[in-house]
Computed example of a mutant assay.
Amino acid sequence: MDILRVTATRIFYAILLLLAVLILNFTMMHLAPGDVADTIAQSMGGADEEVLARIRADYGLDQPFLVQLGTYMGKILRFDLGYSFYYSRPVTDLILQRLPATLLLVFTAQILAMIVGVVLGVISARRPNGILSHFVTFFALFGYSAPVFWTGILLLIAFSLKIQWFPVAGMRDVTLTGGFWVQAVDIARHMVLPTLTLASIFLALYSRLSRATMMEVLGSDYVRTAKAKGLSTREVVYKHALKNALSPVITLAGLQFSAVVSGAVLVETVFAWPGLGTLAFQSILARDTPTILGILFFSALMVIVGNLLTDFVLRLVDPRMRGRA
């Protein structure tokens, strides 16, 4: 019952947080200079005040702010994110069309960064003064300081233009014909460089954090007791120490999920990946307010759900977290 109560409390606060984010996003877009009518008028080559007033009336922009906000929140409750004037399609359809590509890229990069980062951190923690430990430290500093778009451009130049191992842009080769496995291999080839780019900065964080926490755990009393009982180093590290050392890494993964989503905007733009990042970039240039608000809503939803899942995984991994509010 404690777990159910804690879960219900977390979900309740997550809903309140999502509502606050929606209101904040709508308010910021309302305060920004210009509106949809100005953008449509520019695409038409200009318009007089009568035409602008008619456009604002069609989009409900002539109503008071609170009325507009209430109308927007009512549509959100009906899962209606509005209509994109730039793409001439419902925003929900646009997002659902691009969402799988972003989720595939984000989750692949996150999983890769966690696995490789934890492995490097654990190995270097076992020999803190070894060459590998110093390499992990250098790699972490380099990966964390390098801008993600710069890393992507370097990988493009090296492995797409010079060596030509991987495609330059896109998610698939539209001229390629074949069955499921042919298409899957083609998508995997297109994913390599964007995934490595997005995972680079987070891999550095996970490797440093797992190294530090693993060194702290290996110096604890229960680990020394396990060694005194004659357990092998592998059993001590992977059966006893690693479970406790993973808790901070999992927490960081949940906190960094928002940064992964925001970083995907830059990565998708560099590699022309057909996901939410590219859609957001194009919508910002076009001043497509409904689409921008819809993408912000989905991004906030992904971050909140990611944090909820992180809290749930922590309670499964670390028994000390169970029952806590």
Results as ranks from 00 to 15, higher is better:
Arg5Cys: 11
Phe12Ile: 10
Ala14Trp: 05
Ala20Val: 12
Ile23Gln: 10
Thr27Phe: 14
Asp35His: 06
Asp35Gly: 08
Ala37Asp: 01
Ala41Ile: 02
Ser43Arg: 13
Gly46Gln: 02
Glu49Ile: 08
Glu49Gly: 01
Ala53Gly: 09
Arg54Gln: 15
Arg54Asp: 10
Leu61Ala: 05
Leu61Glu: 03
Leu66Val: 09
Leu69Asp: 00
Gly70Val: 03
Tyr72Glu: 00
Phe79His: 12
Tyr86Pro: 07
Pro90Cys: 02
Val91Arg: 06
Thr92Lys: 14
Ile95Val: 14
Ile95Arg: 07
Arg98Tyr: 06
Leu99Ala: 06
Pro100His: 02
Leu105Asn: 03
Val106Gly: 00
Phe107Gly: 06
Thr108Asn: 12
Thr108Phe: 05
Met114Leu: 11
Leu120Gln: 02
Asn129Ile: 13
Leu132Thr: 07
Ser133Pro: 09
Leu141His: 12
Leu141Gly: 13
Phe142Met: 14
Phe142Arg: 15
Tyr144Val: 13
Gly152Cys: 02
Leu154Met: 13
Leu155Asn: 05
Ile157Asp: 04
Ala158Glu: 05
Ala158Gln: 06
Leu161Thr: 10
Lys162Gln: 11
Trp165Asn: 00
Val168Gln: 02
Met171Gly: 11
Val174His: 09
Leu176Val: 02
Gly178His: 02
Gly179Arg: 03
Trp181Val: 07
Val182Met: 08
Gln183Cys: 05
Ala184Thr: 14
Val185Ile: 12
Ala188Asn: 06
Ala188Arg: 07
Val192Ser: 05
Leu193Asp: 06
Thr195Ile: 05
Leu205Gly: 12
Leu205Ile: 13
Leu209His: 06
Leu209Phe: 09
Arg211Leu: 09
Met215Lys: 13
Glu216Lys: 15
Ser220Met: 09
Asp221Met: 14
Val223Cys: 08
Thr225Leu: 15
Gly230Ile: 09
Leu231Glu: 09
Glu235Phe: 14
Val236Ala: 07
Val237Met: 11
Val237Phe: 12
Tyr238Glu: 08
Tyr238Cys: 07
Ala245Lys: 05
Ile250Ala: 03
Thr251Asp: 03
Ala253Trp: 11
Leu255His: 11
Gln256Ile: 09
Ser258Thr: 15
Gly263Leu: 04
Ala264Leu: 02
Val265Met: 04
Glu268Tyr: 04
Val270Cys: 03
Phe271Gln: 03
Phe271Thr: 04
Ala272Ile: 10
Ala272Glu: 08
Trp273Gln: 00
Trp273Val: 02
Gly275Gln: 00
Gly277Glu: 00
Gly277Tyr: 00
Thr278Phe: 15
Leu279Pro: 01
Phe281Gly: 10
Phe281Asp: 12
Gln282Cys: 06
Ser283Met: 01
Ile284Cys: 05
Arg287Gln: 12
Thr289Ser: 09
Thr289Cys: 10
Leu293Ala: 02
Gly294Met: 07
Gly294Gln: 07
Gly294Cys: 08
Ile295Gln: 04
Ser299Tyr: 13
Ala300Gln: 03
Leu301Thr: 11
Gly306Cys: 01
Asp311Glu: 08
Val313Lys: 05
Leu314Ala: 00
Leu314Met: 12
Leu316Glu: 06
Pro319Ile: 04
Gly323Thr: 07
Arg324Trp: 09
Ala325Thr: 13
